[in-house]
Design a binder for these strands. Structure first.
Length: 695
DNA sequence: CTAGGGTTAG
């Protein structure tokens, strides 16, 4: 019964004490324990031995005054430890850690090893002869190489008397899942059956999640359905995995059915499952569903964890509900959770997309302070937000920090450069936009459609028509073709261009969209004559062909061109088409107390045209003796349009003055110009009198 | 970390 000095031992452990040290008395009765490890130089513990006899002594409650006895010799110190003392549990933990670390190293060697039996077996031979089942489990569990894992499994099966063979199979399946190899997993399952090893819920949930991760949700469902034929009843984890798999398969109903079933069967549904449900609802765009699940979870007394919070934050970001993200984040913090990288990422996305720039930049700052590295996607999200709200200086700053980031994995990509060029273009910084374009090309990125779109705007705003034409030419040089947005920007450039330069751009416009080119030709070229009503038909046809999100922009631009060319009648026709096609909605409204003109989201030309039509309506009402309400109002919006110093409100104010209109900016309602019934009536009447005089 | 669920997005 001599103790074994640590120096003679293999680094790996020689008995299975680690998992049973305190728990099993019966186990003690036939085992002798050896702590072979050099645990801590300070204590100079070389070896510790606990015999059965001493074990029973020290665990006697009457010995509690004397929790452990030390036997110190001059040459070697030995420590006698009560296995129930804190010291013992510390020893246990440390020795476990040591063995665990060794097994992890073996797993790493196996991952790097040639997938041939001889090599794999050689690596495993370093474990020595006295391996136990737990060694096999830990080793396989830390592996990621599917091929060598299968050979290691074989080795353990040959060398060990396995009491729970299913476990070693289950861990092997985990390795196969890591390498997303469902085929091999299915083969291993077959082998289990051949060897008479009965699969359990762990087996099935691992295979199911493997199928899910392989993007084969139908396969996952197949496996779930064969579970009962092996005498298994799904348990909470299997349900959770399956709910996720149904969600991934887009089968939200089945996912929710399973959730109901799990709930009916009184399974303990834990936070991870709720997080899965939240993710499913979020992916399906049912954001209220996400919040309902969250409420239900709390009602069931389940405490949210980080996964739940991060899924919720992500969903609220997708939902464009930054205020809800903010509330949930606040709740998370007050519950004592520390935000993770994923939390910050969700927040930046939620705030960034919704243009909560202050909040987003605050998160960015916090991440930097904590030394958390942003990904390219996150940087790009921030930069796109800066471009949206016109934060030029902040964007430049972020861009510089991105380039200077430590790891070098965050080098700008074409998205990054696009955002930056957009920012410079929108703020009229032509040379900065050009030099960023050069930098982008030096970094190996061709300008894409986004970049060319921005440059067209940039040159258009600067009145550099020839550069607009040149940039248009690059489109086909690069094998790109104009999309609706690009064409819309080109059209917008036309609204800012002097009449004598228009023909240069019309050549481009015609190439980009012949119908649109023709429409503009009708406006510019007075020689082109068409029959009555043809213009409106052309307009309606054209607008019908483009997608919803550019219709209003096209219509606005066309009206602006009309107004610039003094073709008020055509402008009115276009506005009428816009109203008919529901491109403009609720421009004019009437309540008992107020008649209003809503000009938000109209261009200046369209707004002036709408005002013209509204005034005609008011005149008609006046003529027919209709009673005006006590208030009349024009809403231009707050007028703080990004990148333009003077928004609609400002321009409109001076225009109303020119018309001598009695509308005055409401001090308490930003963006509203109001007048009274009396003032409006007398103004309209005086205008009519003037018109009579004029004729 | 200790046989099963989720986790990085435009």
């Amino acid at each position: 019964m001599a103790s074994t000095p640590s120096s003679t031992l293999s680094p790996l452990y020689e008995s299975s004490i680690f998992c049973n040290f305190t728990s099993s008395q019966s186990f003690l009765s036939h085992q002798k324990f050896t702590f072979p490890l050099k645990l801590h130089s300070k204590f100079c513990i070389r070896a510790t031995q606990v015999s059965l006899q001493e074990q029973s002594q020290v665990s006697d409650p009457s010995n509690s005054q004397q929790p452990y006895r030390k036997a110190v010799s001059s040459s070697k110190s030995k420590l006698w430890v009560n296995p129930k003392s804190p010291r013992a549990s510390e020893l246990k933990r440390k020795s476990y850690d040591f063995r665990y670390a060794s097994l992890v190293k073996v797993a790493e060697s196996l991952d790097a090893c040639n997938p041939v039996e001889e090599d794999v077996f050689n690596v495993l031979a370093s474990l020595g002869d006295k391996i136990v089942e737990q060694d096999a489990v830990v080793t396989l569990n830390n592996m990621s190489n599917a091929e060598t894992a299968l050979l290691a499994l074989k080795y353990f099966q040959q060398r060990l008397k396995l009491s729970k063979e299913v476990i070693i199979y289950n861990v092997t399946l985990k390795v196969l899942r890591k390498s997303k190899d469902l085929d091999k997993a299915e083969k291993v399952f077959e082998e289990m059956l051949e060897r008479g090893v009965k699969p359990d819920n762990v087996t099935f949930s691992t295979i199911i999640s493997c199928a899910r991760q392989c993007n084969l949700p139908e396969k996952a469902i197949e496996w779930f359905e064969k579970l009962p034929s092996f005498g298994c009843e799904p348990d909470d984890v299997t349900y959770s995995v399956m709910i996720d798999a149904y969600g991934k398969a887009g089968n939200v109903d089945m996912a929710l059915n399973l959730y109901d079933r799990a709930r009916a069967e009184k399974w303990r549904i834990d936070a991870v499952t709720f997080a899965t449900l939240i993710r499913i609802y979020g992916a399906a765009g049912n954001f209220d569903g996400c919040l309902n699940v969250y409420e239900e979870m709390k009602a069931l007394g389940v405490k949210p964890n980080m996964t739940v919070y991060n899924s919720l934050l992500d969903a609220m970001g997708r939902a464009k509900r930054p205020w809800q993200a903010k509330n949930i984040y606040g709740e998370m913090l007050s519950n004592g959770f520390q935000p993770s990288w994923g939390t910050y990422a969700s927040l930046i996305r939620a705030y960034g997309r919704a243009r909560y720039s202050e909040d987003a930049l605050k998160i960015y700052k916090e991440m930097k302070e904590k030394g958390l590295e942003l990904s390219v996607v996150l940087y790009n999200t921030l930069l796109a937000m800066c471009a949206d709200v016109g934060l030029t200086d902040e964007a430049v700053n972020i861009f510089e920090e991105m380039k200077g980031s430590e790891s070098g994995t965050c080098q700008p990509d074409s998205w990054t450069y696009s955002s930056l060029i957009t920012i410079y273009s929108c703020s009229g910084k032509v040379s900065e936009a050009e030099s960023t374009l050069n930098e982008m090309m030096e970094a190996g990125f061709d300008p894409n459609i986004f970049v060319l779109t921005s440059l067209i705007q940039c040159y258009g705003k600067a009145g550099r028509t020839d550069d607009v034409v040149r940039t248009f030419g690059r489109l086909s040089d690069l094998g790109l073709s104009a999309d609706e947005r690009f064409t819309g920007c080109l059209l917008n450039v036309l609204t800012q261009t002097a009449k004598e330069d228009l023909h240069k751009l019309m050549v481009c416009l015609e190439k980009a969209n012949p119908k649109l080119g023709y429409m503009v030709k009708l406006l510019v070229d007075e020689e082109v004559v068409e029959e009555e009503g043809a213009f409106k038909t052309h307009a309606a046809e054209l607008l019908d062909c483009v997608t919803m999100d550019v219709r209003k922009a096209y219509c606005n631009c066309l009206i602006d061109i009309c107004v610039n060319l003094n073709q008020l009648e055509r402008a009115c026709e276009l506005l009428d088409v816009g109203l008919t096609l529901n491109i403009y909605t609720d421009i004019m409204s009437r309540t008992a107390t107020q008649w209003s003109l809503h000009l938000k989201s109209l261009s200046l030309g369209a707004a002036l045209t709408a005002l013209h039509i509204w005034m005609n309506d008011l005149n008609r009402a006046l003529e027919s003796g209709e009673e005006f309400p006590s208030l009349l109002g024009i809403n231009t919006g707050h007028g703080k349009h990004k990148y333009s110093e003077k928004g609609l409100a400002g321009v409109f104010e001076s225009h109303l003055k020119e018309l001598n209109a009695p509308f005055h900016e409401a001090p308490d309602k930003a963006g509203w110009f109001l007048t009274t019934k009396v003032a409006a009536t007398s103004w309209l009447e005086s205008r009519r009198a003037q018109e009579v005089v004029a004729t």
